[in-house]
Amino acid sequence: MEILMILTVGVIVSVSTYLILTKSLLRVVLGLVMLAHGAHLLFLTMAGLKEGAPPLLGEYASSYADPLPQALILTAIVIGFGVTAFLLVLSYQTYKAHKTDDLDELRGSADE
């Protein structure tokens, strides 16, 4: 299972790297979103995939899942949600102001 997860993370991260390196604004944003998913999955995997009951008061089981990584990933997802919303608005505004979504043209001139 770990190997499958690691492979998935690898694929996601490589796709996101590809997207971040392209020239289109929107693809860069999507690449960052993918990278966030890859990082969260990696966190889940690295913290150990194990079977067990949810660590709640009412459950009486012999083994429990580790709640910490789940709490942390949830926090990271929430933060990622906010950041993505901001980034989308920002890239839309940039597109509107510059009339282009080509990052080559958004380099800025050399003499500035």
Binding site: A85, F86, V89
Partner: peptide
Amino acid sequence: AVALLSILTIAED
């Protein structure tokens, strides 16, 4: 509010 605000800001424009 955050979800609606961010989506509507783009949509209204």
